[in-house]
Computed example of a mutant assay.
Amino acid sequence: MSWKLVPTGLVLSMAVLAGCSSTSQPSGDSAQSPAAIDSGHSRCDAAAAQFAVGKPASPALLEQARTKAGAQTARALGPNDMITLEYRSDRLNLNTDQAGSVNRVNCG
C-alpha cells in the first residue's frame, strides 16, 4: 500500500463514521415524539373509536372514527385485504367482517 493513500483513506473513513453519528434530541418536558411534533398529530387512541364496532363501514364512519381517535389517517380493512406491515402510530384501522360491519378497531 502506498503511504500517499493513507491520509485519503483516513479522511474517507472519518466521513463515513460522521454520517453514522446520531444527533441529540433537545431536552425538555415535552411528552410528544418528534413525529407528532412534525405532523401536528399525536398517537391514535383506538379506545375513542370503539363506538364504530358493529356498525357498517362507510367513508363517513371512517372519518368520524379517525377524528375521535385523533389519528392522522384511517383505513377500512376487509377480512381478505392485503395490507402493508409497517406500523404507524398515527393511523386508525377499522377491521370489517365479510358483511362489511366493523368488528375490530386498532391503531397501526
Rank of each mutant, 00 (worst) to 15 (best):
N93T: 01
Y87N: 01
S89D: 13
V53Y: 10
G54L: 10
L17Y: 05
A35R: 10
A18I: 12
S22D: 10
Q72K: 15
A65L: 05
T67D: 03
C44Y: 12
C107A: 07
L62K: 12
I83V: 14
Q72E: 11
N103S: 06
S101M: 11
D29F: 09
A65R: 02
G54K: 09
A48Q: 14
L85G: 10
N95S: 04
L61T: 07
R104P: 04
A52Y: 07
T67H: 14
Q32M: 14
L17G: 13
A48T: 06
S89Y: 11
L5Y: 09
K55H: 12
S21K: 04
A71M: 12
A52N: 05
P79D: 10
D90V: 01
Q64W: 07
P26Q: 08
I37N: 06
L94V: 00
S24C: 04
A74I: 01
T96P: 00
L62E: 15
I37Y: 08
N95V: 13
H41G: 06
L61I: 09
L61Q: 08
A49V: 08
C107P: 00
M14P: 01
M1L: 13
P26N: 07
G28R: 04
S101P: 00
G70M: 08
S22V: 07
Q25D: 07
A65F: 02
L77S: 05
P7S: 06
P7H: 04
E63W: 10
R43L: 13
N106S: 09
C44G: 05
S39H: 11
A99L: 07
N93I: 02
M82Y: 07
V16W: 08
N80D: 15
P7Y: 01
